[in-house]
């Protein structure tokens, strides 16, 4: 059972963490929040945005502020699963030969899978076990990944040629999907200032520890959610299904598949984490509403008509929010 001291310690740690990331990342509050929420919920984040927006920097800053091991995997079409998860290599020592496991880059606390949609589905799938089970199996031997563990994958929405869109099953493994948008002019000014002055950009020092993160996870897990809000989250998820009674008209028209039950779990968990980050001791409706888009935007599959008409999933989720009420 957690205590007031635990709560305070966790809050302080994440406050420092957010401040440390803020010294490097200009703007992108929602993206930073999504990363922290995923960290608190044992989730993974899919970051989508054009190159040069600071996605990699964000991940590096997060790892640096936490003092955790960080690895970056640049996905390419010729990347093999063994390149990610590692492989057994034959070693010889004192005339004795044996296989020794050489861990891949997934064996870290914070993994950046850059341009994940450029690798083949086989390689992409190599990440599935690590993301979902926090384990890696090589030649029948399963290796535990060290907690806290988080995968932050990026994909480029523009260069689609020669890419392999993530299969739905893999997309569903990401707790949240954050859209990295282009900074405003003020943010851009600050970015250029920070990166061109004499000192240059510096990755922050560790301000929190792995223990802080694990403690915070316990604190978040116990945050109570009112029954009415839990029911609200369920109806929000159901409303993304075109055949649901709660579905707004545009969902019926443009959606092929709605969000999975995993989405409902993600919604509740992420809402708890957001409430924690906001300093609350219970989940509010605004927490669920705020987290709805990052939690569900990658889980709705548009039908042909929706694709053809260029329907934006975020707009459909706005419709869902308008249609569904708590009571």
């Amino acid at each position: 059972m957690i205590t007031e001291k635990d709560l305070q310690r966790a809050r302080d740690a994440f406050t420092r963490l957010r401040e440390a990331i803020g010294t490097v990342i200009v703007g992108h509050d929602t993206v930073v929040e999504a990363a922290l929420v995923a960290l608190l919920c044992r989730g993974n984040v899919l970051l989508e945005g054009v190159p040069g927006l600071g996605k990699t920097l964000l991940v590096r800053a997060l790892a640096g502020a936490l003092g955790l091991r960080f690895s970056r995997i640049q996905f390419t079409p010729d990347l093999m699963p063994a390149d990610i998860i590692g492989t057994d290599i034959l070693t010889e020592e004192g005339g004795h030969r044996e296989f020794e496991f050489a861990a891949g880059p997934v064996f870290a606390n914070i993994v950046l899978a850059d341009e994940v949609n450029r690798a083949t589905p086989k390689t992409q799938s190599a990440l599935l076990e690590a993301m979902q089970e926090r384990t890696v199996t090589v030649r029948g031997h399963t290796y535990e990944l060290e907690e806290p563990y988080i995968v932050l994958a990026t994909q480029n929405p523009i260069e689609m040629e020669g890419t392999y869109p993530l299969p739905e099953a893999q997309v569903d493994r990401f707790l949240l999907k954050a859209i990295v948008r282009f900074p405003s002019i003020e943010e851009l000014d600050r970015i250029t200032t920070r990166n061109t002055d004499a000192e240059g950009m510096a990755i922050p020092d560790a301000v929190a520890s792995a223990e802080d993160v694990l403690l915070a996870r316990d604190v978040v897990a116990e945050i109570p959610v009112a029954e009415a809000l839990r029911n609200y989250a369920s109806r929000l998820v159901l409303a993304t299904h075109p055949d649901s009674e709660f579905a707004p008209p545009r969902i019926r028209d443009y959606v092929e598949y709605g969000a999975s039950p995993r989405a409902a779990i993600a919604l509740i968990m992420a809402a708890k984490a957001r409430a924690f980050l906001c300093g609350e001791v219970n989940v509010r409706q605004e927490d669920i509403d705020a987290i709805l888009e990052p939690a569900l935007i990658h889980r709705l599959i548009l039908n042909f008509r929706g694709e053809a008409e260029g329907i934006v999933v975020a707009d459909l989720l706005e419709d869902v929010l308008e249609k569904v009420t708590v009571l």
């Binding site: 059972m1 957690i2 709560l7 109570p224 959610v225 029954e227 001791v281």
Partner: peptide, 15 residues
């Protein structure tokens, strides 16, 4: 309502 839920489930004495 959250307090009622916490009391009902008994899972979070702290909250």
């Amino acid at each position: 309502s959250s307090l009622h839920e916490a009391r009902k489930t008994g899972s979070s004495r702290f909250y």
